[in-house]
C-alpha cells in the first residue's frame, strides 16, 4: 500500500508572500490522500529544486501570484535539470494569463492551472498522471 503514496511539493518561488492559495492547495492535496511538503514563502528556484530532490517528490506544484512566473518557474526546471531530476512533474498555478501557457510549457512546465482553476483540477491531474502511472507500474 505504501508504494502508492504520491509525494507532492507545494513550492512558492519568488517574493510573493500571499500564501492563502498555497496553503489551501496543500490542505486540499493532503485531503486527497497525498503526502504534501510545503516550502513556505520566498523561495529561490534552487531552494525549491533541492527540496524536491531531497524529498524525492513525484510532483511540484508551484504557486505565484505576482506575475513573476514567466521568469521564475522555468528557473525551477533548470535547477532540477542541474540536479538530474527534471523527470519530476512541475505544475504551475497562480495568476497566469493564457498567453503565458505555451511559453511555460516550452520551458518544461508540464501543466498550467491559471485563473478559474482550483485545487480540484490539480488533484485530478495528479491522479490521472502520477497515480495512474504508479498503478500502471
Amino acid at each position: 500500500m505504501a508504494d502508492k503514496v504520491v509525494r507532492v511539493l507545494v513550492g512558492k518561488p519568488g517574493l510573493d508572500g500571499h500564501d492563502r492559495a498555497a496553503k489551501v492547495m496543500a490542505r486540499a492535496l493532503r485531503d486527497a490522500g497525498f503526502e504534501v511538503i510545503y516550502t513556505g514563502i520566498r523561495q529561490t528556484p534552487a531552494q525549491v529544486a533541492q527540496t524536491a530532490v531531497q524529498e524525492d517528490v513525484d510532483v511540484i506544484v508551484l504557486n505565484n501570484l505576482t506575475g513573476a512566473h514567466l521568469e521564475v518557474f522555468p528557473l525551477v526546471v533548470e535547477e532540477l535539470k542541474k540536479r538530474g531530476r527534471d523527470d519530476i512533474y512541475v505544475l504551475a498555478t497562480g495568476v497566469i494569463p493564457f498567453e503565458d501557457v505555451e511559453p511555460l510549457k516550452e520551458k518544461g512546465i508540464d501543466e498550467v492551472f491559471g485563473p478559474g482553476t482550483g485545487p480540484i483540477h490539480v488533484i485530478n491531474w495528479i491522479k490521472e498522471h502520477v497515480l495512474g502511472e504508479k498503478q500502471g507500474e
Binding site: V5, G33, F34, E35, V36, Y38, Q50, T51
Partner: peptide, 18 residues
C-alpha cells in the same frame, strides 16, 4: 485519507540550497 502535511522543513528552508 493517508494524506499528510509535512511542514517541518519550513523552519530550515533559509539554509538551502546547501
Amino acid at each position: 485519507t493517508g494524506g499528510a502535511l509535512l511542514g517541518d522543513r519550513i523552519r530550515l528552508q533559509h539554509l538551502f540550497p546547501n
